[in-house]
């Protein structure tokens, strides 16, 4: 926990460096694939901050993603700014909304938090449809040049930041307090931890990065529309990724995102299997939640304890 060589961090950064090299030196198709993969990874790291670390299940996490998507779409389509300003605004608003929402909903434990977050997503969807600024049917489309590599490095930077933060949060003071909260929140408070403060802190990080990732997502798809921006299956995908990879860890989200992404969009998109990917992911979530709730990283941790410093 202290003073150990951060092998995990080096390993993850090496993987990220390799991805950057591949994206830079291969064709557009590969770059686009990597952009999508990293959007998934960014979302996975984002939900990992709250759900993975504290155990508070954020079913409505799409809200923050949607905030980011709309921030970028409105800025770029209405005010013709650069997408980077959209990302900055998305991150800012994502973080601020998380603080505001969290100040209320993080007081609710267990299922109550989960349901409150779900209900907020649904309310958000209905409210967006209410405002003409977000386009008819909540749809905004913009036309800007197609620059896959720029998009790639935007999302790449976000994921790198998330990896580094996850790693240091986990091994530092906050991480120890957060784990105590996850195990026994009341006892943590009785040991001097201020649960609300720590939960708000990680929730804010979570909202901030979901906002940034949502902005890049809108950029990469040249627009946003309400029914997909608030699509709750996105929340499920994010949960699936950290669950499969390993909740709360710094390796789990990238691992889980890669698996879910490849399953979803690359292996199971044959026309005959329409919807098949949802079945596979849904079934995987059920099996993993019930039988191996600590995911792949958890399995490795138990089977090969000597690998611990490399994967955590």
């Amino acid at each position: 926990m202290k003073g150990r060589t951060p092998f995990t961090l080096y390993g993850l950064l090496a993987v990220m460096a390799a991805l950057a090299a591949v994206a830079s030196f291969s064709g557009v198709a590969t770059t686009v694939l990597l952009v999508n993969l990293l959007v998934f990874a960014a979302l996975a790291y984002s939900i990992n901050f709250i759900t993975g670390m504290t155990g508070y299940v954020s079913f409505g996490h799409v809200v923050f993603m949607a905030i980011g998507s709309y921030s970028l779409a409105v800025l770029v389509s209405t005010y013709s700014t650069s997408p980077f300003e959209g990302i900055a605004l998305g991150a800012l608003l994502g973080g601020l909304f998380a603080l505001g929402i969290g100040a209320v909903t993080l007081r609710f434990r267990g299922v109550y938090f989960a349901i409150a977050s779900l209900v907020l997503a649904l309310a958000g969807y209905n409210l967006v449809l209410q405002f003409p600024q977000f386009g008819p049917g909540g749809e905004l489309i913009f036309y800007i040049p197609f620059q896959p590599l720029t998009v790639f490095f935007a999302i790449w930077g976000i994921v790198v930041a998330e990896i580094v933060l996850t790693f240091f949060v986990n091994r530092g003071k906050v991480g120890l307090g957060i784990r105590a909260i996850k195990d026994e929140e009341d006892a943590a408070a009785a040991a001097g931890v201020n649960p609300m403060k720590l939960k708000l802190y990680v929730y804010m990080l979570s909202g901030l990065f979901a906002g940034a990732a949502g902005a890049v997502f809108a950029w990469s798809t040249f627009g946003v529309n309400a029914s997909s921006a608030f699509d709750l299956t996105f929340s499920l995908q994010m949960l699936a990724m950290i669950l499969i990879g390993g909740m709360g860890t710094s390796t789990g989200p990238l691992l889980g995102a890669s698996i879910v992404y490849l399953l979803y969009y690359e292996l199971l998109t044959y026309p005959r299997l329409q919807g098949g990917q949802f079945l596979v992911v849904g079934a995987a979530v059920i099996v993993i939640a019930l039988f191996v709730p600590d995911g792949i990283v958890g399995i490795i941790r138990r089977k090969y304890p000597s690998l611990k410093p490399v994967i955590e």
């Binding site: 299956t233 499920l236 699936a240 669950l243 992911v281 849904g282 079934a283 979530v285 059920i286 939640a289």
Partner: peptide, 9 residues
Amino acid sequence: VATFGLSLV
């Protein structure tokens, strides 16, 4: 989470 998965299936 498991029943969330079930709803998707």
